[in-house]
Design a protein around this nucleic acid. Structure first.
Lengths: 319, 319
DNA sequence: TTAAAATATGACACCTTATGTCATATTAGA
DNA sequence: TCTAATATGACATAAGGTGTCATATTTTAA
């Protein structure tokens, strides 16, 4: 009961600014004295409530703290109960069915939490699955996950980009779910590395434990790692003109689109755009599919590459 | 204190199987009698603890429940503090910075929760952003979100699939984050509808409120809606043989791959596979990019379509 | 300066909840 | 039959919380 009330006091002060003990007492149907005690309890708990004595006195949250709270407290509560996609939960072995049991456990928490939880569940849903069944292989995920939780070293057979199988002994720090793809973040030879879980052919949890780096923050590491990866991503830019009839298709596969200039309602006016690919070959393969609806402006030698590919298609099916 | 202890009992039983009241009492530094009372409380709360009397007696969780719990209780706690992607939080106005303040609030919860929260944060990270900047337009999300929270009707200017702008008055029920794409689930004309947020050109929150349907469950509705959408997705299956040199590429764009038969280590043996497309044209455009590395087996008339497209490429660049 | 509105603190009586101790009963296995 | 275990009730005590009351201090306005 009291935890409920403390939380409510915080929320009231956040929303209304300054309130007297008498007002709070009436709102919460307790005595003034109880409110004063609650204020002691909040202070003890580190919540910076302060009092103004005398006329026009009352209680408020320290202004700085309050302005933080105004963007935080209610939203904190909301995000506290915003659950990730059922697919992620499932692949972590935390089935959607667990949601119900968790709700039950949550019922033991002060009522305000519960109300916020329900509101969030009712209004926001996250879904990371694809429209069609993903073929991403997560056979190794259970084993990898076990090692992560138990802080044990892991031997993995890893399929490298060139298709070669390599055995590695790693210290698994965490897992990152990027869309439908799981990455294992681990230490090998004193260096941080990311391994795509679908490329782990086999994983064996070792008995040997390891010391987790003291200041390792998975989310921060991942953002940095991602930034570096993106920096190293090859970029092959192509200037094209697009026939309006395929604009919809371009939006649907927006993956390569960087810039679209001057989209016009004139159904006959070709539209300039910049596309970015990882490699020339990727550009060729993509652009050839647009046939005569996408015209290469630059680089100029890409045209002959596209034509060459088209010729090989024709020869292939001549038989 | 007691809530802590109840939770600890559950965890101990889950981890150790059967324990006597005496053992639990010693572990938790309370009397046997208190443990027996706690068991009553757990039963009352719906946790199926059962006792074995007499020699070799003790307390355990119902086997079925325990096996669920082994995937549930600890995992419940874990998933309770598994936070969705920072991108989703950001777009909901719940910035990553809120995480820290939430952690502080969570500190008020029994210590076991806090420990689990830290473990989860340290080991699992979710990231729904793309390697490259997404072009998905979420300008309207703030306004839409506001209406969702406030339970107010919303007027939207919606860009339909054919590009036409339509004005709609809707009752917004919730938001679904599907990968990088937000969908608004709303009622219009007494029917549930999904609107892609990036297609909402403009949104205006009305003053008029609406009655939320009593038994509406967003997650359930979304799963059903998705199922129906997938059922209606056209499926155009193509049997192909793939040269091993492009297998890597196929894995990278696994979107269309349905079945791969007999993958061989023989670098000269073509591999049979089934690809699924939404339309014949999509198949043509995709397969042409593989040139002579992907051979169409069936349907047979697709070959001529691919050749035709290749010809139009060649003619296009003849100038 | 006075009065009113506010908080600050302590104390006490009372209420509610929780705990430990004890006694008796029942169950299960050796 | 004996021992190890749970089952239940009861009672005294402890712990936590609340309301009422009294006294003290601070602030502002008249």
């Amino acid at each position: 009961m009291r935890a409920d009330r403390l939380m409510t006091i915080m929320i009231l002060l956040q929303n209304r600014g300054k309130m007297t003990a008498k007002e709070l007492a009436e709102e919460l149907e307790v005595s003034d004295r109880t409110i004063l005690r609650d204020m002691d309890a909040l202070s003890t708990a580190g919540i910076p409530v302060v009092s103004d004595r005398g006329k026009d006195g009352g209680w408020r949250l320290v202004d700085n703290f309050r302005s933080q709270l105004s963007g935080l407290t209610m939203n904190d509560l909301k995000s506290l109960f915003l659950f990730p996609s059922g697919k992620v939960l499932e692949e972590l072995g935390l089935n959607s069915g667990a949601l119900d049991a968790r709700h039950k456990l949550l019922a033991a928490i002060p009522g305000t939490y519960r109300d916020e939880a329900e509101a969030m569940w009712e209004r926001i849903h996250i879904d990371s699955s694809t429209w069609r069944q993903s073929k991403e292989n997560v056979d190794a995920l259970q084993t990898v996950q076990q090692a992560v939780w138990e802080g044990k070293k892991l031997t993995i057979l890893y399929i490298q980009a060139d298709g070669e199988l390599k055995e590695r002994l790693v210290e698994p720090l965490g897992l990152v779910a990027k869309g439908n793809t799981w990455y294992l973040v681990a230490i090998r030879d004193s260096e941080f590395r990311n391994y795509r879980v679908s490329r782990i052919h086999k994983a064996i949890v070792e008995n040997e434990t390891f010391i987790r780096p003291a200041n390792f923050i998975l989310a921060a590491y991942w953002e940095q790692s991602k930034e570096e990866f993106i920096q190293r991503l090859p970029a092959y830019d192509v200037q094209v003109e697009i026939h309006p009839s395929v604009m919809k298709r371009l939006y649907f596969t927006s993956k390569f689109v960087q810039v679209i200039k001057k989209e016009s309602s004139n159904p006959d006016q070709w539209i300039e755009a910049t596309l970015r690919f990882n490699a020339e070959q990727e550009a060729v393969e993509y652009i050839v599919g647009f046939a005569n609806k996408m015209k290469i402006i630059a680089p100029k030698d890409l045209k002959s590459k596209v034509v060459s590919l088209a010729n090989s298609v024709i020869n292939f099916y001549k038989e």
